[in-house]
């Protein structure tokens, strides 16, 4: 595994974006203790810390997909802020916030991560809808979002181009309907 100083910001972004195993192993082994300590000091268990770490990493994964992301902090600080916010949400749900010692008020960076957390929640909802689609719809949309043309999609799936185009519309509409019908839709899309 590479040493700490050998990972530049861009290398970390690239490694996380590509789900690179070595980068993720480095991230887990060097960043997780920070999350575990924070949650441990704030009414959580090590298992809670792992859950929150995984959730936080997903937000980071979604964030690094953008091509022109403006980073106002290091990735480690970003992850910590996300995990901290997420843990606060858990504590609020558990109604044990009074037991939380020493949780400072949210700083600027944390209000910024709130947006990233919400975006990641919307993607999660979209993926949940996608999982409920039929295989043919999943194939069409996967190929489409991979950047394949309708002609290529039609050829790959043995459709006529007209049918491929129609199918893509039907599948997108179905996905929009599924997402719109989800109980969390209003909170995430209609603020």
């Amino acid at each position: 595994m590479k040493k700490v100083t050998q990972y530049s910001h861009d290398e970390l972004v690239r490694g996380i974006r590509n789900s690179d195993r070595t980068t993720l192993a480095y991230v887990y082994s060097t960043w997780f203790p920070m999350i575990r300590d924070f949650i441990g000091k704030n009414a959580g268990t090590e298992e809670d810390a792992r859950d929150i770490f995984q959730e936080g990493m997903l937000v980071l994964f979604d964030k690094v997909q953008g091509s022109e992301v403006e980073w106002k902090s290091t990735l480690k600080t970003f992850l910590f802020a996300v995990c901290r916010n997420k843990w606060l949400m858990v504590l609020r749900k558990r109604k044990t916030q009074n037991t939380v010692a020493d949780l400072e008020s949210l700083s600027d960076i944390e209000s910024e991560v709130a947006e990233d957390i919400e975006k990641s929640e919307r993607y999660k909802l979209m993926r949940k809808g996608f999982d409920q689609l039929g295989t043919e719809c999943q194939q069409v949309l996967n190929l489409f979002f991979e950047g394949q043309s309708m002609k290529e999609i039609a050829e790959k799936l043995s459709f006529t181009p007209a049918y491929a185009k129609k199918k893509k519309f039907i599948c997108q509409k179905k996905l929009i309907d599924l997402v719109s019908a989800d109980p969390s839709f209003q909170e995430l899309y209609e603020k």
Binding site: S19, Q65, Y123, K124, I176
Partner: peptide
């Protein structure tokens, strides 16, 4: 519009 924007990001990445 927001859903279609999210769709293109969410489904492109191999989550």
């Amino acid at each position: 519009v927001e859903m279609l924007r999210d769709m293109s990001v969410a489904l492109k990445a191999d989550v």
